[in-house]
Design a protein around this nucleic acid. Structure first.
Length: 574
RNA sequence: CGGAGUGUGGCUCAGCUUGGUAGAGCGUUGCGUUCGGGACGCAAAAGUCGCAGGUUCAAAUCCUGUCACUCCGACCA
């Protein structure tokens, strides 16, 4: 490929709307162009990158006996009505009607389609286990796309679905898939990726893991133990609190004018935030009834845990006069409103607390839950803290980090097979539901994540496994006949050898040329110039500058091939 | 869906406060000089100032509405 014909416009300046580096570099480098909010077209360089990522994924999925299939993008609503998700999923599912007014939808995930495809095939136990996967466009009408390819509305995803006779078999396969995923991320150039326990969300099921690339621009928060191997999404990280023992005191009402927040109250009273009790109010989506969570003053409510505990959706409350809730002064004692009161685990063992008195400008001190309120069940509803206690090793070694979710795996159980009535007959003639697992990787997001993790000020630094080309050939001074001739021949020779090469023979200044080369991030750069030819050498370097050498002109092909081989070997080392 | 901000040639932006009918740099086209980290000179093309109303003799500028984008939050495999 010659660079002067490469489709896509590159820019000198960083595009103003781009906040994260991977987004900025991809727009600046002509990798993609925005079409609509969260919807992009890909130019050849990015298409080449994602194609290579897809092929790595294919290789690894096939290696664990996956069979590639293809489901439709457009699905009839009826299929999703079977599983109940046509109703339960919100407006991120794009629903529309076809010409005969039949309700349709754009696939955002394909459990229903997968079950539909193999329902008959899977009617006998002889055929299990098996896994099918596809690499295909998904559409999710996200409320807020952001960060280029990190969160988009339309994207390519590899989604896989496995079917098993027993939970043990699912678990064994789940492990295999987890390992395959780790190989994929390593080979694609982000060996930094870690596996964390996660919430199953709308997918259903109990056990789930996410593959996270730790980075400050990530959207998820992770709890990582620096002492043992515990890792979890903060959504599910178990909070453990050890409270210092404090002397019991009598429950005493005190005047706290204008002190509404925990900080204000504790400052006013001169008390420790850790001995205060914070009330956070929610309402249930289903009937708007109130739920109040009491936590220790320094803790925050983890809404995912709350939703999972209640088994239903909640939203931050709008507190009305009629509710009987005195905002800013809420406490468990003499609570007059109508609400479900929950006590977070962080309050357990504190014998004396500052609480709201349910009266404007009054709090109470010396609150003891058991003595003044009664026996309660403490529930884990709060977010784990930095330097919190690790649920696995018990040390105070939890570190919080942000991460991009590049993949996920779920043990689904029989949620879809039951709702869609997919059954098999076992060896005893009994009819049973198969057990499912599902496994996803966002291809574009993975490409963006690699760029995010590996770039410099001038552009992405692609690993050779997914780079748009293997070699970037620069001919400086193509107006010089001898130089041009040599470069042309080298270009042809590389193509003949099957090397993927992008050739820049434009009559532009060297700096201009190198800037474009940096933006394309191709791992091997070869520079042919009059200056080099005078010494009978050609310059070969890597994009990351780890290797920079001058090789004799008669050994150029040999050296290039050797370097490429070396880079592949390094990148594929598992 | 709430809060904040921004919309001016392909890109990055100035002009708006205090209305007088549009500018710069980059990029593009042509010619010439240059040539190892985004060169320079000359010439040229390119914008109904997001859109729609309104105020005014006159609107990029003031007012109203609307749309789009970015950020924060809510939401979210």
């Amino acid at each position: 490929m010659k660079l002067d014909k490469l489709v896509g416009e590159r820019f000198k300046e960083r595009p103003s709307d781009c906040v994260v580096d991977s987004h900025a570099l991809m727009v600046k480098g002509g990798y993609m162009k925005r079409v609509a909010n969260g919807i992009f077209s890909m130019n050849p360089p990015l298409k080449r990158v994602t194609k290579k990522i897809e092929n790595i994924i294919r290789y690894e999925m096939d290696r664990i006996d996956g069979q590639e299939v293809l489901f439709p993008v457009v699905l009839p609503a009826g299929l999703w009505e079977e599983s109940g998700r046509y109703e339960s999923v919100g407006s991120e599912l794009l629903r529309f009607r076809d010409r005969s007014d039949a309700p349709m939808l754009l696939g955002m995930t394909h459990e229903e389609a997968a079950v539909h495809l193999v329902k008959e095939f899977g009617n006998t136990h002889n055929r299990y286990p098996f896994m099918i996967y596809q690499i295909q466009t998904k559409f999710r009408d996200e409320a807020r796309p952001r960060a280029g390819l990190i969160r988009v509305r339309e994207f390519t995803m590899k989604d896989a679905y496995s079917f098993h006779l027993t939970q043990e078999d699912l678990e064994a396969y789940y492990e295999e898939c987890l390992e395959a995923y780790n190989r994929i991320f390593k080979r694609a150039g982000i060996p930094e990726t870690i596996t964390v326990a996660s919430d199953a969300g709308m997918m259903g099921g109990k056990v789930a893991h996410e593959f996270m690339l730790p980075t400050p621009i990530g959207e998820d928060y992770l709890a990582i133990c620096s002492h043992c191997d515990y890792t979890a999404n903060m959504e599910v990280a178990q909070t453990i609190v050890k409270n210092a023992s404090v002397p019991m005191e009598a429950l005493t009402k005190v005047h706290t004018p204008n002190a509404k927040t925990i900080e204000e109250v504790c400052t006013f009273l001169g008390s420790d935030v850790k001995q205060s009790c914070k009330a956070v109010v929610y309402q249930k989506n289903v009937d708007d009834s109130y739920v109040i969570v009491f936590t220790r003053g320094d803790m925050d409510v983890n809404e995912i845990k709350l939703k999972n505990y209640l088994g239903e959706e909640v939203y931050p409350a709008i507190i009305t006069e009629e509710s009987g809730i005195v905002a800013g002064f809420i406490g468990p004692v003499n609570f007059a409103g109508n609400a479900t009161l929950l006590f977070d685990i962080s309050l357990e063992g504190i014998d004396s607390l500052v609480i709201g008195a349910n009266e404007v400008d009054y709090h109470s001190t010396g609150f003891n839950v058991e003595r003044d309120y009664g026996e309660v069940t403490y529930v884990d509803l709060s977010k784990i803290l930095e330097n919190g206690i690790c649920p696995k090793c018990g040390q105070e070694t939890i570190q919080l980090s942000r991460g991009i979710e590049v993949g996920n795996i779920f043990q689904l159980g029989t949620k879809y097979t039951e709702s869609m009535n997919m059954t098999y007959t076992d060896e005893n003639g009994d009819v049973k539901y198969p057990i499912m697992g599902c496994y996803g990787i966002g291809v574009g997001r993975l490409a963006a994540s690699v760029a995010e993790a590996h770039h410099d000020d001038y552009g992405p630094i692609w690993p050779i496994t997914i780079a748009p080309w293997e070699v970037h050939l620069c001919c400086l001074r193509s107006d010089d006949a001898e130089t041009k001739d040599f470069a042309d021949n080298l270009y042809k020779a590389m193509k003949d050898e099957g090397i993927e090469v992008i050739y820049d023979d434009r009559q532009v200044r060297p700096g201009f040329m190198f800037s474009d080369a940096d933006l394309l991030g191709v791992p091997v750069r070869v520079v042919v110039s009059p200056r080099n030819l005078k010494e009978s050498v050609v310059e070969i370097s890597t994009r990351d500058k780890a290797i920079q050498m001058k090789v004799p002109t008669d050994r150029v092909m040999h050296e290039i091939k050797g370097l490429i081989e070396e880079l592949y070997k390094e990148a594929n080392r598992i």
